[in-house]
């Protein structure tokens, strides 16, 4: 078969797909982070742990209650969202008037506790989670082999990102959210219960992380540390995209996943650092991020 840019197409497209899958996870996770940061002013360091909880809840639903992948895709994020709501009411709501640093420290501590608990209960070797029967196998596209489940991950994450974007940009609820991100006091003075909105936004943001966790469970093994490996990259993605920009978070997530995948083809040695190099360059040239607004 002909080569593309000096590489067999299978290699090129294979890495591109891998990049797209990673990008899908970066996009969903940074979307949730951007939402939470926008409204709560909290840098949610527990986001990786909440992603991991999503995967674990899917695993536990299957192995304890016999609930399969499709219901878990809804139930596990809901459960993560509920734990988020409890965390917000019990802890985060006390920190809003303080510096960002306190929220970061609290959520970082929570992440360590959550990871520690799951590590204690399930070890670090990783637990298997099977692909749903309907998505086993794959398609031979001629230039590459496309596993069905991976195609689904890309489709599902694009749909979730697009749905969230529509919710925020095109609905009344989204207008409240955008307005409250700018000036919560005034929005509350219009008669909106902003504290409840903040609680639900945190719940929704971490439920998105839980959703990504369920999507990830059949691809990566379910592992207490799966979130902490990912979250550092996701923070770099958020910094590059610009804190608080929804579309920016999504586009940057997918874009950087693809760049990372292509780097694996063209210069594999740099593949684990390319995102951080981009982050450093963006911070030098445009400190507010590609899509962020300078304040």
């Amino acid at each position: 078969m002909a080569e593309l840019l000096g590489f067999p197409p299978q290699v090129l497209f294979g890495q591109l797909l891998l990049g797209l899958i990673n990008g899908a996870f970066y996009a969903i996770l940074s979307l949730g982070l951007a939402l939470i940061f926008g409204l709560l002013n909290i840098i949610n360091f527990a986001h990786g742990a909440q992603y991991m909880m999503g995967a674990f809840f899917a695993y536990l639903l299957l192995n304890i209650l016999g609930i399969g992948y499709w219901p878990a895709l809804i139930l596990a994020p809901l459960l993560v969202g509920v734990t988020g709501i409890i965390i917000e009411r019990l802890f985060l709501s006390r920190l809003y008037k303080l510096d960002h640093l306190y929220g970061l420290l609290l959520t970082f501590g929570l992440a360590l506790i959550l990871e520690g608990v799951f590590r204690h209960l399930y070890g670090v070797s990783g637990l298997p989670y099977a692909q749903p029967a309907a998505l086993q196998g794959g398609q031979n596209l001629g230039f590459m082999y496309l596993p069905n489940y991976r195609a689904w991950v890309v489709v599902a994450s694009v749909a979730v990102c697009l749905g969230t974007w529509l919710l925020i940009e095109k609905t009344k609820l989204g207008a409240y959210l955008r307005a409250a991100t700018e000036n919560p006091t005034l929005v509350q003075a219009f008669g909106i219960n902003v504290p409840v909105m903040i609680t639900l936004t945190y719940g929704f943001g971490v439920a998105l992380a839980g959703f990504a966790g369920v999507l990830a469970a059949p691809i990566y093994s379910v592992n207490p540390l799966m979130g902490s490996n990912l979250i550092i990259i996701v923070f770099a993605v958020v910094v590059i995209g610009g804190m608080g920009s929804i579309m920016g978070a999504v586009l940057t997530g997918f874009g950087l996943g693809i760049i990372e995948g292509l780097t694996k083809v063209f210069y594999p040695e740099a593949s684990s650092t390319v995102i951080f190099v981009i982050m450093a360059i963006v911070l030098l040239i445009k400190p507010a991020g590609l899509f962020g607004k300078a304040h």
Binding site: E182, N183, L186, A189, F190
Partner: peptide, 24 residues
């Protein structure tokens, strides 16, 4: 009462800095 409850009684506020939302 919190401001949202006061607003619901029929009081509306136009602040000095006007409070027009840039993202809307």
């Amino acid at each position: 009462l919190p401001p949202n409850k006061i607003a619901r009684l029929g009081v509306a506020w136009c602040p000095e800095e006007r409070g027009i939302f840039a993202s809307l």
